[in-house]
């Protein structure tokens, strides 16, 4: 997988610090699962977190804090010493964190048509941001739209192009308020993406705008 579009430092730092809404955590975890470069950068941000644990003014612990911790330890057995549960073999479209939300791989997704051959599936995440899977048939377009907040799009299969560049498997597009774009899926494999937004998209043609409240996009 040749990844050319990566996460920003700001997103990696906010993920490391635990400051992102759940849907954004999901897409960061999904990209990092596929991208060793961002995994290394995330490691550096975690290391800053570790270094910051060294503080000057430390609060008092409860007098019996260690004792209570030992009781907690005694109450629960150690996790078994084996690697994480084996992931299903064979071709997978979704990295592990995404599989956990879908409950499996591509065949488990319950798609809903949103017009022009495009399908979506909204994933269950906490309020504040929305995560959805998008299925764009090869050659089809997502309607021209702008963004009220930030939109992250991670390509899982196929590829799309918009006014800015080409995005292939593992690539993440970071769209902000300034960008208006019409992503078009390339010929070949149908394009499957994970898209996360922190505000509703702004569609430029009348029809999608009317449909928006029903589709939650």
């Amino acid at each position: 997988m040749k990844i050319t579009h990566h996460l920003t430092d700001a997103l990696l730092m906010a993920y490391s610090a635990g400051q992102l809404p759940e849907a954004f955590n999901l897409i960061v975890a999904a990209h990092v699962s596929l991208c060793d470069e961002c995994r290394a950068r995330l490691g550096a941000f975690d290391a800053i977190g570790g270094a910051l644990l060294e503080a000057e003014d430390l609060p008092e612990l409860a007098a019996d804090s260690l004792e209570l911790t030992m009781q907690r330890i005694a109450a629960a057995p150690r996790a078994p010493q084996m690697p994480a549960q084996p992931r299903p073999q064979g071709r997978r479209v979704f990295p592990a964190p995404l599989q956990d939300y879908v409950g499996g791989d591509l065949e488990q997704v319950r798609w809903r048509a949103i017009g022009m051959g495009v399908k979506q599936a909204i994933l269950p995440t906490a309020r504040g941001a929305t995560a959805r899977l998008l299925y764009i048939p090869a050659g089809a377009a997502v309607p021209d739209h702008g963004h009220r907040g930030m939109e992250l799009t991670l390509v899982l299969q196929g590829a799309f192009r918009d006014e800015t560049d080409r995005f292939g498997p593992g690539d993440i597009e970071i769209a902000t308020e300034e960008l208006e774009h019409t992503p078009i899926a390339e010929a070949g494999d149908d394009c499957i993406c994970l898209a996360v937004t922190d505000a509703p998209l702004r569609f430029n043609s009348l029809l999608p705008r009317l449909a928006q409240p029903f589709l939650r996009i």
Binding site: E22, A29, S33, D46, G50, L53, P95, P97, A126
Partner: peptide, 27 residues
């Protein structure tokens, strides 16, 4: 220290935000 930070960070999201925190797939 880094490892403890990540455990504490995850516990914070769990306890304060009551949200799941997806972790990257293990290598």
């Amino acid at each position: 220290a880094t490892w403890i930070f990540t455990i504490a960070r995850n516990r914070k999201i769990d306890a304060l935000r009551k949200q799941r925190r997806p972790d990257p797939e293990d290598l």
